[in-house]
Amino acid sequence: MAIYTKGGDKGKTSLFDGERVSKDSLRVSTYGTFDELNANISLADKFCISKRNKEILQRVEYRMFFLQGEIATQDAEKFRSQSRIITDDDVHYLESIIDNYTAQLPKVTSFILPGSSLAGAQLHVCRTVCRRAERQLVSFMKVNPVRPEIERYVNRLSDFLYIMARSEDHEDYLEKVIGEVVQRYYKAIGRLNDHG
């Protein structure tokens, strides 16, 4: 089956509820930016060292489908009757990760570069795309109703991505330190054997 439908050849696209709108509409631009964010989060999770961080990011990736779907529907009730939606439980989940990781990670006392590891750098890309998506959502909300749970979730999401970036940078640092210690140990053992 072909993935193209030719339905968008004249600059229109279909929303979740079947409504046809212009591809440059604010609604399409908003959920499209969240789609871009989700693709970047997916890339970030492939770079992660921590298995737990991978699992956390994948959970967020699935929640992004619910967020995008609701924005991509003019008849929000129709979407909510057929799909899961973002709730305050999802907001609290992000807050719990932010609070736990903030307590565990070393304190930041100055500006930091956006990522000292590959995963950290990619998560900072996610953070900046998230901020852009949030700005678009704010513009979208001026003319369209949006549930406050979605607004809260998006606002927490950029902070969550920041702390995840810090976590991966820290994991990368620890891995390098351990690698250096192991390397020095084997060098020392080698020298002892040479003199033994």
Rank of each mutant, 00 (worst) to 15 (best):
Y4K: 08
Y4N: 15
Y4A: 15
T5V: 00
G7L: 11
G7R: 13
G8P: 14
D9P: 15
D9E: 14
K10A: 13
S14A: 07
S14M: 12
F16K: 04
V21T: 10
K23N: 10
S25D: 14
S25K: 05
V28D: 09
S29C: 04
S29E: 14
T30Y: 02
Y31L: 01
G32L: 01
T33K: 07
D35M: 02
D35L: 01
E36N: 09
L37D: 08
L37A: 09
N38Y: 02
N40A: 15
A44F: 09
A44G: 14
K46I: 03
C48T: 10
I49K: 14
S50V: 09
N53G: 12
K54A: 11
E55K: 04
L57W: 10
L57F: 09
L57E: 06
R63F: 00
D75K: 09
A76W: 00
K78L: 13
R80N: 08
Q82A: 08
Q82Y: 01
I85W: 02
I86R: 05
I86S: 02
I86P: 03
I86L: 03
D88F: 00
D88N: 11
D89Y: 00
D90F: 02
V91W: 07
L94G: 04
E95L: 13
E95F: 00
I98H: 04
D99V: 05
D99T: 08
N100R: 13
A103F: 06
V108T: 14
T109E: 12
S110H: 11
S110Q: 09
F111H: 06
I112E: 13
P114N: 05
P114C: 08
A119P: 11
L123D: 10
V125S: 08
T128E: 08
T128P: 15
T128K: 14
V129C: 12
C130L: 10
E134A: 08
L137N: 05
V138N: 06
V138Q: 06
V138K: 00
S139E: 15
V146T: 01
R147P: 08
P148F: 00
E149M: 06
R152A: 14
N155F: 04
R156W: 10
R156L: 07
D159T: 01
A165D: 03
A165E: 06
R166I: 04
E171L: 11
D172V: 04
D172W: 12
L174C: 08
L174F: 04
E175I: 07
V177Q: 14
G179E: 02
G179N: 03
V181A: 12
V181K: 12
Q183R: 13
K187Y: 00
K187E: 11
L192R: 14
N193F: 05
G196M: 11
